[in-house]
């Protein structure tokens, strides 16, 4: 917890410094005596520096130990990867097919049976087709199968 909080505070500090530099150098702090496009981001970053330092100071009395267990890290990796794979697959197979396949794969990876995964794929495909494409008229990117 302590190390994780310290790392997060450093990330916030770096983010704040980036925002400050960009606000002053690229966006413009003032315009005709009034706040320019960089004015608000600059002050947001200044306050972010103050609170990030506060977090660093507070982190001193936090307990040690990891914020993740094996299981939490595994679930974070599974769902984040599933999201990225959905995006990549959608470019080739269309979004509907991609969502249905990823749903089936997730059922398996999260501990479901093969039968449940196989049933999930067409169920998600049909339900999402009816809900999004028919009812809500959202046009999903299409794949080689025409949907």
């Amino acid at each position: 917890m302590k190390r994780g909080t310290q790392i997060s505070a450093v990330v916030l500090l770096l983010l704040a410094i980036y925002i400050m530099v960009t606000s002053i150098k690229k966006l413009g702090y003032k315009l005709n005596g009034l706040p320019g496009p960089g004015y608000a981001p600059f002050w947001i970053a200044v306050f972010l520096v103050i609170f990030a330092l506060g977090i660093l100071w507070e982190a001193k009395r936090l307990p040690g130990g990891s914020i993740f267990t094996r299981r939490t890290l595994k679930m974070l990796a599974i769902l984040t990867t599933a999201g990225i794979i959905t995006i990549l697959l959608a470019l080739f197979l269309g979004l509907l097919t991609s969502l249905a396949l990823v749903a089936g794969a997730l059922v398996l990876l999260l501990g479901g049976s093969l039968k449940q995964a196989v049933v999930t794929v067409p169920t998600v495909g049909i339900c999402f087709y009816l809900l999004f494409q028919r009812l809500l008229m959202v046009s999903f990117p299409k794949g080689p199968f025409g949907f």
Partner: peptide
């Protein structure tokens, strides 16, 4: 409802 079915279906619903 089993957790894996719930998580998988809500996850793809969020992406859609």
């Amino acid at each position: 409802i089993p957790v894996h079915l719930l998580v998988a279906s809500v996850f793809v619903l969020i992406l859609a």
